[in-house]
Every structure is written in structure tokens, then in C-alpha cells.
Design a protein around this nucleic acid. Sequence first.
DNA 1: GAACTGTATCAACACCGTGTCGAGTGGGTC
DNA 2: GACCCACTCGACACGGTGTTGATACAGTTC
Lengths: 224, 224
Amino acid sequence: MPTTAKPATDAVVAPGKGRGRRAARASGDDRERAILETAERLLEERPLSEISVDDLAKGAGISRPSFYFYFPSKDAVVLTIVDRLVAAAAGSREEALATLAQGEPRAGLRRGLEDLYAAFRARRAVTLAAAELRMTNPEARELWAEVMEGWVADVTAVIESERAKGAAPPGPPAREMATALVQMNERVQYAAFAGESPALEEDRVLDVLVDIWLRAIYGTADPG
Amino acid sequence: MPTTAKPATDAVVAPGKGRGRRAARASGDDRERAILETAERLLEERPLSEISVDDLAKGAGISRPSFYFYFPSKDAVVLTIVDRLVAAAAGSREEALATLAQGEPRAGLRRGLEDLYAAFRARRAVTLAAAELRMTNPEARELWAEVMEGWVADVTAVIESERAKGAAPPGPPAREMATALVQMNERVQYAAFAGESPALEEDRVLDVLVDIWLRAIYGTADPG
DNA sequence: GAACTGTATCAACACCGTGTCGAGTGGGTC
DNA sequence: GACCCACTCGACACGGTGTTGATACAGTTC
């Protein structure tokens, strides 16, 4: 069963609360949505650091002070968006894990990583903004840490189970290996999304990652 | 032979030029050094985003406008420091490569990764600042891209050579594999330096990374 | 329909960080 | 002693953030 980590998060991850408006229920919901949509739209054009509160307010058809009625800061807007993306991705994960554990490792692993990759790739602007925000915002760091923690725990369990079954040879502590592999995925995917200069082509990312995972875990790219 | 990439970099990487003062040679060298030292010192206390030009100026015993006589911006200061760190690390790389190619893969690889790891670990504050700066500063992005490019090229060459020798089995294109592995190292090391929550202990980083590299390249953790 | 309550709005303000301009100052040199 | 040139900094303009207080307007509630 996938680990969900500290309960302190619930307030943070909850849909419209905590990060959102102060109370409200009236037509101002439209404005809140307009702000979120403006943010997503602008993030596809330029990095978070080049978007101001005023840009978001103008984009949503309100003044800058009005913006603060809906969100306490620019960061809060992005965190709300990232919350939702992460929640959506979490859905994929559950599914992926089921597929993975039993049956053929290669196909299973690929399907698992595929769903995650697809989820973030489909919202690359948000993914990149999350990474940017993580550098300066402790809340963003915390949120992402929990996401990573979940994946690492899952992968650790899979590795241990495969080793117990005798399907995978022994090696470094499963959790350490899982941590490195999950972090590799994060970095490789980010580089591909950002179009960095040494980076994998977007349609090569999965092939290469799956191959390295299999070799790392099973000692061969084609385990039986 | 290690690749050094585009020559456009020379201006950027050159020690006291381009990024440094406008002309000068007199005693103001002290002030320039004082600024650089202040920056390094403050970076050990708090992230780059929480350090202002005024902090650097005060730390160097000058006023804020005077700061601009020596550096065009806060970013330029950090870039100068990173330039130097990167240049120092490049020294290790040359050495490392020689050790690596011939002899026992495991020991060779470990020594190679070790030097790099040690170089960045010894200046972790600068390393973290470089990562932070990379998010918002194109010049920093460029500089780091070149560094990564160099490593990827070297590792690609090693993998191809081992495959040609028959020491390593075939697999995904060497360059793709090298890219993923180098990016994994970057991310895992960063997480360890930053003390992220799912992260390897600092004294476990090398063991785990070497193991994954060996399995990825040779199909076994104990080639030879 | 008047008084009240809570949502929603924004002009004006206080604040902070950046980068520039222009008026200096003081040591070296011809 | 006139002149440079490295060097310094007060004062400014600008742009971003977040807050305050006055106001408008929509529903109750009596």
C-alpha cells in the first residue's frame, strides 16, 4: 500500500481551502478560477519569476489589491495549481503500482513510469514553475518533498519485494537505490521539459529511464 | 580527450574579466576580493535569494553604489565564484578520466566520481547557490550547461570504449545513458547537500551512485 | 423599505530592493 | 598646479510587494 506521509499536509492539499480565499462562496469563484487560469496561461509564455501579481490580476480582470482578496501571494496561486497536478498524478501512481508489482517487470515498470511522465509532461509549464518555486518557497519544498517521499516509499517496497522473491539480486539498501532512481527521473524529466542543452529527447526519456531502472534493480535490461 | 565545447565561453570563464570590474588595477582589488568573500560567507548562512546587494556591500565595507563599481549585479558575483569552482572541478575531471579508462572499472569509476563529489561538497554553499541562480539567470544556465556537456561527453566516450572492448554489453545509445547518469548524480548530490527530505546520507552518496553506474553500464555491480 | 451583514472592489500608501547619475575626493604624474 | 583616473556615495527613479480604509452592492431580517 502506498504511503501517504504526514497528516499535517491535509490542510495544504485540500482543494479550495488553506491556500485559497478567506471564506466566500458567491460569484467570486469565477475570479478565483480566472486567476488560476491566467497563471497557467502565463506560465506557458514565461517563467514564474517574470510574472507579477499585477499580471495575474490584470489577466483576471481585477486590480492588484483585489487579487489579495483571493490569494495571499503569487506563490499561493502556483502552489494551488501544483497541489492539483500532484493530486492528479497521485491517481496514476496507485494504478501504476498495481500493474507493476505482478507480471513482467519491464512492461510493468514502463507502464508505471509512463503514467507519471505523461501527467507531468501534459502540464510542463506547471511542472517547471514548481521546480522554480521550490528554490525559494519552503511550502513548495515541503509539498514536493512529500510527493518524492511517496514515490520513494513505493519503489522501495517494490525493490524489496522483488529481492525477496529472488527476482532481483541483492544490492545497496532498497531505499537508497529507490531515492537515487526517483531523483534521476525527476532531473531527467525536468531537463527534457525545459529543453536543457544536454538532455534527452522527450520521446527517448522513458526508454532510457526504464532501461537504467531495470539494470539497477535486476542487473539486466531484460529480466525474466 | 575531454571536450571543452564552444569557445564563446572563454570571455565568460576568464578569471577577472567580463564579469568583474570595468577596468582598474589599484588597491580596489582588495574590495573586489572582499565582496567575493562576503558572498561566500553569507551563502553559508542563507540562500542567495535572501542576500541583497546591500548585504554584500556592507560586508565588504562599502556603500551600495560602490558595489556597482566592482560588479554589475549580485548575480555576477555568484557567477564569478561559480566560474572558479567549476574551473577547479575541471582539474579533477582530467585526472579522474585518466584513472578511470584503464584498470578496474569499479575502483576507477569510484575515484572519478569521488573527486567531483568532493570538489562540490567542499563548497556546498556555492553549489546550492549555483542551482538557485540557474533557475532565473540565463548566464548561469549556460555556464552549467557547458559543465554538464563536458561530463556527458566524457562519460559517453568511456561507455563507448568499454562497449567496443567488449567489457560492457550493448544498450541504449551511450550518450543518452551518459546524460541520464550525469543528471542523476547532479540531483542526488544536490539533494544530499541541501539536506532534502528524501535524500541519501552524505557518506552514502558515492556508494549508491557508483553501484547504479556500474549496473547501468556493465550490467553488474562487480565487473571485471 | 430601513438597517444590518458579509462579499467584493480599488485608490492610495508604506516599504524594500535594484540600478543610475552626478558630484565629489584624494593619490599619482607630468 | 593642473590634470587625470580610480574610487566613493547621496539622492534619485523605478518597479515590485503587501496593507489600509473607504466604498459599493447583494442578500437577509425585521
